[in-house]
């Protein structure tokens, strides 16, 4: 359990109701409902193809569900678009690293600040007025995140040259640069060794603890999920088969069946 800090889990910040999503004849999600409370770490688990990533894509507007509603901070909508999601404070990372490979670490993280840039195109071209001042202001924030995630040594390295574990961290940094209220992490620890996983866990917990960021996490490593999450939702074949605290989920017979195939 992660109740080590003095963070207080608040009210429901995100609520998805009866979400159904299909691609042609394939039903990715069927009638899914769950909620996320403020400041909590909420895990979504399930076997491959259970619809976990699709769920995140629905939350931040990449996919448009055929049915159901999403209520985020009291605002109900069905057609969340990516821009609106980002503007309302939802940031995310991707399962397959989606960094901008041709840019340096610093520039990648700076892109996370884009919604906070007010300087007009002309100001930026002339490098005058707000453009210059803002650039330095954003740089300061980004440097804090670089410190936080210990990326100082690779600041000016093009992302393409970095090892996998660091790339994952840069992606988290880019998401954090937006100062999100809710962070969607799609398998942040996939393909990492034990030490890298420990580091990542620490960063996720620290983010949650220091910035109070609500975290929705998809992860396959059960040890990690059971350790750091407050509540866990379990999906299988696009349906929700379990929901509750890690202990509850662990003893849920449906979940055991889905994972172990036992009778």
């Amino acid at each position: 359990m992660s109740d080590s800090g003095n963070r207080k889990i608040g009210d429901v910040i995100l609520k998805v109701d009866n979400i159904s999503l299909s691609f042609g004849g394939v039903k990715a999600l069927t009638n899914i409902s769950f909620d996320v409370r403020e400041h909590e770490i909420r895990a979504i688990i399930g076997p491959n193809g259970a619809g976990k990533s699709s769920m995140l894509n629905v939350i931040n507007g990449v996919y448009l569900p055929q049915e159901g509603t999403i209520t985020y901070r009291g605002e109900q909508r069905r057609d969340m678009n990516t821009h609106a999601a980002a503007a309302s404070g939802i940031a995310r990372t991707f399962q397959n690293i989606a960094l901008f490979t041709g840019m340096t670490v610093l520039d990648n993280i700076m892109t996370g600040r884009n919604l906070k840039v007010k300087a007009t195109f002309l100001e930026q071209a002339l490098w005058i007025g707000r453009a210059r001042k803002e650039e330095m202001e954003h740089r300061r924030v980004v440097e804090e995140i670089i410190d936080f995630l210990q990326l100082q040594h690779v600041r000016k390295t093009p992302v393409a040259r970095l090892p996998y574990g660091i790339k994952k961290r840069v992606e988290l940094a880019r998401a954090l640069a937006a100062e999100p209220t809710m962070l969607l992490l799609d398998e942040p620890m996939a393909g990492m060794n034990v030490e890298e996983k420990q580091d990542m866990c620490r960063f996720v917990l620290d983010t949650n603890d220091q910035f109070g960021t609500t975290i929705v996490l998809i992860e396959h490593d059960m040890g990690v999920v059971m350790d750091i999450s407050d509540r866990v939702a379990v999906l299988d074949y696009g349906k929700k088969i379990g929901d509750g605290t890690p202990a509850e989920v662990r003893s849920n017979p449906d979940v055991i069946k889905a994972y172990l195939g036992a009778h």
Binding site: F94, L99, F100, Q124, A178
Partner: peptide
């Protein structure tokens, strides 16, 4: 930011859209 938006779209347009 203008230039970074161009490079972001060049390198990974889905991610660029998701971050705004």
């Amino acid at each position: 930011t203008v230039g970074r938006s161009w490079m972001a779209v060049r390198d990974m347009d889905v991610a660029a859209e998701v971050i705004g």
